[in-house]
């Protein structure tokens, strides 16, 4: 979470000093942009004054390393413990349309699971975790690489795969927005499920399970 905040903040600081996105191999001020912050009410000069890419670049790389090292430890530990398989892989019956619909309804009504169901990840939760861990995170890392000049020699194929380094930059930003959405939804879910109980369980392992009747009282 600390990593996410720093990576987001430092990324934003870098972006603000060049607040336009392009598609393809090249892009610069005056070139056809696919996104201009100035179209959204913040002029180039205003954004530039808010940003600080020197600070941003230093911290972006620092926390990218913290993120990657931490991520590898997390990945290794969970593979070792077979936790991805037992906790995150949706069971066959969970993937039925009926089940998914029911889970979706519960989420939209902000109804938290009770009883034994509360101890497990819900199916939508499982899918979103897998998506973040194995699609969005790797995508962020690789699209970051595709923007680095060293990779024009290490792996030009990677840059071509994105359609050019400007496309990689644009996709990096889009992926950031998706991750931000995930974090916001995730935080709302934690609140719905009872923040005190959840956080206590993360730190101490103690988790109070509400039963249907207790909830009704």
């Amino acid at each position: 979470m600390l990593c996410f905040v720093y990576l987001l903040l430092s990324g934003l600081m870098i972006f603000l000093q060049f607040p336009e996105l392009y598609w393809g191999k090249v892009g610069f001020q005056g070139y056809d942009a696919v996104f201009k912050l100035s179209d959204w009410g913040l002029s180039w000069e205003e954004a530039d004054a808010l940003g600080n890419r020197r600070w941003g670049r230093n911290y972006h790389y620092l926390f990218a390393w913290v993120f990657v090292i931490n991520g590898l430890i997390y990945l290794g530990w969970n593979l070792w413990q077979k936790r991805f398989y037992s906790k995150m892989l949706p069971r066959r019956e969970e993937l039925s349309v009926k089940y998914l619909k029911a889970d979706m309804k519960n989420h939209l009504r902000f109804r938290a699971p009770t009883g034994t169901a509360a101890r497990q990840y819900g199916v939508l939760q499982k899918i979103s975790y897998l998506l973040v861990l194995f699609v969005l995170f790797p995508f962020m890392i690789v699209s970051g690489f595709a923007q680095m000049p060293a990779f024009t020699a290490i792996s030009p194929e990677l840059i071509d795969l994105f359609g050019g380094r400007q496309s990689a930059r644009t996709l990096h930003v889009i992926c950031t927005v998706l991750l931000l959405l995930f974090v916001v939804v995730h935080l709302i879910e934690v609140l719905v499920a009872g923040a005190v109980n959840q956080v206590r369980s993360m730190i101490t392992g103690r988790y109070v399970v509400l039963t249907e009747s207790a909830e009704g009282d």
């Binding site: 870098i14 336009e20 191999k25 892009g27 610069f28 923007q147 380094r165 400007q166």
Partner: peptide
């Protein structure tokens, strides 16, 4: 013929 990659974010060939 190479792509000049600026740390600010722009690039040009």
């Amino acid at each position: 013929i190479t792509n000049h990659i600026c740390e600010q974010g722009w690039s040009a060939i």
